[in-house]
Design a protein around this nucleic acid. Structure first.
Length: 540
DNA sequence: ATAGGGTTAG
């Protein structure tokens, strides 16, 4: 990217003499349109060069557009290169730049730019305040809140709504509620934001109470409540609310469909998912990428990989998320080579794989036992795809080594990693130790897990099983005992299954289902089949 | 010229 400069000769800016105000306006219009049509950051530099020639990088309207385009094209550094050479940026430019930082997950840069703006005595408006609030943590939010009151933006609707939202996101329900209560007209929009605050803080009960108090609820309000329930893992309640919504004749849109599909994915509610699919088609709800991706995800996670592929194939403007969803689904179903094929197609079509793509691809390798490919992918992550390996990627490699039985190597890998292992990674290693019968290493890993205090009941159970299977009965029962003492055995395992549009829920040790005898008998049969298949697999 | 309630991948 070319750096914008103020062209000077002997200290004086040079302006093109042949541009009268009308011509300037026309050129500005044309340039902005050119910028808006850019699909790729590579198309921007020639236009930028022209902007420097024509406007000397000083026309706020054009620069504003330039900053926004660079940001939307995932090139916030280019946007900043433009911004930092503007001598006295106005509040519009600050807003665009802060927004750019926020959407690239660079909140700290957004906040410090806002501070610089205040220091440079540029008066904030309600737009820039809502922008910077998105970047704030709790302390910064309080600071901006103070300024808001001092500067008289306390009655700006968008500012107040954003303040509530950020307080909620930061877990400060008290202040969110305070702002809400102080609003002169608490309409359904404000209530929707407050419902989200409750959901963000895990207060489902309060969210539902407020929801029930809202007199006239529109699609957005219903959708927010359904989504809040989904995010808090109250799937059945979410689906119940969805049915209620339709009985109240509130129209369902693509947002609602995506939320419900996400609930179906979690519950494995294939039939309801299919129903939402046909509902989307019959209601002519826009089959956007959001909906398409949610459908692909729902079908894969409900075990219907064929239908997932069908939806995926039918999507015309697939994006990175579409590919990631499909590759993850294929990996989940053990179709490792299909997943790799999907990855190749994605790269060939010019998409840049991101960190999620690489997790999916590594998972595919792991599930297929493709050690060499997996290691190769991991090694090329940074060099070829410019993705810095995160804990999830390291975890995939540990999983991969563990699965193929190279446990010592996996342990060495963990010890040599530049980051600390988390309980998920150690848990994967632990179960690999159990599967491959490496008791010494298993014991070492389990102890490390329990010391880290991040362990769940599963760790204790596995450690106790490891002791039991090597005849160390005393140690085994001691582990069970310390599990009870630590109160960690309280979390009940839960699973659900959908049958004839009914979601059946089962808790660990649950014997309340009317058909429990038939269910447990069938379970035992399945266990025998699985054991047999496992043995066959080993001796193949 | 800008924002202002709800969505997908691990």
């Amino acid at each position: 990217m070319i750096s914008s400069i103020t062209a000077t000769t002997g200290g004086q800016p040079v302006f093109r003499r042949d541009l009268d105000p009308n011509a300037l306006r026309l050129t500005r219009r044309k340039t902005i349109n050119l910028l808006r049509n850019c699909k790729n950051i590579a198309q921007v530099p020639p236009i930028h060069a022209k902007i420097i020639r024509t406007f000397h990088g000083q026309d706020a309207f054009v620069v504003f557009e330039l900053i926004r385009i660079c940001s939307t094209l995932d090139s916030v550094d280019c946007a900043y290169d433009v911004f930092r050479y503007v001598p006295n940026p106005n509040v519009y430019l600050y807003t665009a730049m802060i927004d750019g930082f926020v959407s690239s997950n660079r909140s700290a840069d957004g906040v410090s730019l806002y501070r610089r703006m205040i220091r440079d005595s540029v008066s904030p408006d309600n737009y820039v305040i809502t922008s910077v609030l998105k970047a704030c943590d709790l302390e910064e939010c309080r600071e901006v809140h103070g300024q808001v009151l001092k500067l008289g933006f306390g009655s700006s609707r968008s500012v107040v709504l954003k303040l509530m939202e950020v307080y909620g996101k930061c877990g400060d329900l008290v202040d969110a509620k305070k702002v809400f209560d102080e609003m002169p007209e608490r309409d359904e929009v404000a209530a929707t934001v407050m419902i989200n605050c409750y959901s963000d803080c895990g207060c489902v009960k309060e969210a539902l109470e407020l929801f029930n108090d809202v007199k006239v609820k529109d699609t957005v309000c219903w959708t927010a409540m359904i989504d809040g329930l989904v995010r808090n893992k109250e799937m059945n309640k979410a689906l119940e609310l969805f049915r209620e919504m339709q009985m109240e004749n509130v129209s369902v849109n693509e947002f609602t469909a995506v939320c419900v599909l996400s609930a179906c994915s979690d519950l494995g509610a294939l039939e309801l998912g299919r129903w939402v699919h046909s509902f989307v088609e019959s209601q002519r709800i826009k089959l956007s990428n959001f909906v398409g991706n949610a459908l692909v995800n729902m079908y894969s996670r409900c075990g219907a990989i064929y239908e997932a592929k069908l939806v995926f194939k039918g999507m015309r403007d697939k994006d990175v998320v579409s590919y990631n969803t499909m590759i993850s689904g294929l990996a989940m179903h053990g179709e490792s080579f299909e997943a790799i094929k999907g990855f190749r197609e994605m790269v060939n079509r010019g998409f840049s794989p991101n960190e999620v793509t690489l997790v999916a691809l590594l998972n595919a390798c792991s599930h297929g036992g493709l050690l060499d490919i997996g290691i190769e992918v991991f090694r090329s992550m940074e060099r070829v795809f410019h993705v810095e390996p995160q804990i999830e990627h390291y975890g995939c490699i540990v999983d991969l080594l563990g699965r193929v039985g190279r446990l010592e190597e996996a342990y060495r890998f963990v010890e040599n990693m530049p980051i600390e292992p988390d309980h998920i990674m150690l848990g994967a290693l632990l179960s690999a130790c159990k599967i491959h019968g490496n008791m010494e290493l298993g014991e070492k890993v389990a102890k490390r897990l329990i010391e880290s205090e991040d362990s769940d009941s599963g760790t204790y159970v596995l450690l106790s099983n490891i002791y039991a299977s090597s005849g160390k009965w005393k140690e085994s029962s001691e582990v069970r005992g310390s599990m009870r003492d630590s109160g960690i055995d309280k979390e009940p395992g839960c699973s659900t299954i959908e049958l004839d549009n009914q979601i059946h829920e089962f808790l660990v040790g649950d014997t309340t289902h009317p058909e429990k005898e038939a269910i447990y008998q069938r379970l035992q049969e399945l266990n025998r089949v699985l054991k047999f298949e496992d043995v066959m697999f080993v001796y193949q």
